[in-house]
């Protein structure tokens, strides 16, 4: 493991397992030169950075899909066996979650759209599961991955901005879609132009303000989640640098605190996404 110094250790734990394209003539970390453009695993953080946009974080994708499949598998299983009679343990859990999400949607969303509640459920549970991965001790999975010959492994998809932005961009596209659909292109443009100041002379000002506010929405969604999770992860890694006998005095309280953060961030992400979508459904 590339953990000779604390800085290396931290850097190592914050680097994703990256599979991407290296251009022709690129000199790799071990001194060899890439003969022709190839797709390969990055061996160092520098290589990963040099791959640019044409790269995939295998760990982020893998774990997020695994969590999504876990969510859908669990809930799908419960849904298939759902009975209107006395519910079992799993069904109880699932129904509790569903009711919780329904509560959020009922409180926050004022339009009528059957898509919103399941969307919120997906976001909430998926993000919750991805965040929960953080409670696995920071060295477990990377050590196993290292034994399997993978240099880097970062299991929490929400500590990767790609992970959080991926979701928030999905939400953003839905906001745009429903804004156009409900308000109509004219109505949407009018809303952007004449709020908050309803005067023709202030249209350019309004436009700048509203467009900025619109674009800020997915950015703030993604960055809030990413920031919280990333910061928490860094603290976990820092604690892991301490002598073994003292670690538990810090990481136990921090982990307990993170049970709250993990749930809260999933809740905030979901609620705000529903709020934004609700605003997109309001026709003035």
């Amino acid at each position: 493991m590339a953990a000779d110094t604390p800085v290396d250790y931290i850097k190592h734990h914050l680097t994703n397992l990256t599979y991407g394209k290296l251009p022709e003539g690129y000199e790799r970390a071990d001194g060899s030169v890439v003969e022709e453009t190839t797709w390969t695993m990055a061996r160092t953080a520098q290589e990963a950075a040099d791959m640019g946009f044409m790269a995939v974080h295998v760990d982020t994708m893998g774990w997020s899909i695994a969590m999504g499949v876990l969510f859908l598998g669990l809930f799908g299983f419960a849904a298939r066996k759902a009975t209107s009679g006395q519910p079992g343990g799993l069904q109880n859990l699932v129904e509790m979650t569903v009711e919780f999400v329904q509560g959020i949607v009922r409180d926050v969303f004022h339009g009528k759209n059957p898509l919103i509640a399941p969307l919120a459920l997906t976001m909430f549970v998926w993000i919750l599961l991805m965040n929960t991965l953080k409670l696995i001790p920071v060295d477990y999975i990377p050590t196993i991955a290292h034994a399997m010959g993978l240099e880097y492994f970062k299991i929490v998809p929400t500590t990767d901005p790609n992970g959080t932005f991926g979701i928030s961009i999905g939400v953003f596209l839905l906001i745009l879609f429903y804004s156009f659909k409900v308000k109509g292109p004219g109505g949407f443009l009018k809303e952007l132009s004449f709020t908050p100041f309803n005067h023709w002379a202030l249209v350019p000002f309004n436009l700048v303000l509203e467009l900025l506010a619109l674009i800020i929405k997915p950015v703030s969604l993604a960055l809030r989640l990413f920031g919280n999770m990333y910061a928490g992860e860094v603290v976990f890694i820092l604690i892991a640098l301490l002598p073994l006998w003292i670690q538990w005095t810090l990481n136990v309280p921090w982990a307990i605190f993170h049970i709250l953060v993990v749930t809260l961030q999933a809740f905030i992400f979901t609620t705000l996404a529903v709020v934004y979508l609700s605003a997109a459904h309001e026709d003035h």
Partner: peptide
């Protein structure tokens, strides 16, 4: 790094 993961995540 921002990369294709973004799109992959959106699709997922």
């Amino acid at each position: 790094n921002i990369n294709l993961t973004l799109i992959g995540q959106s699709i997922a």
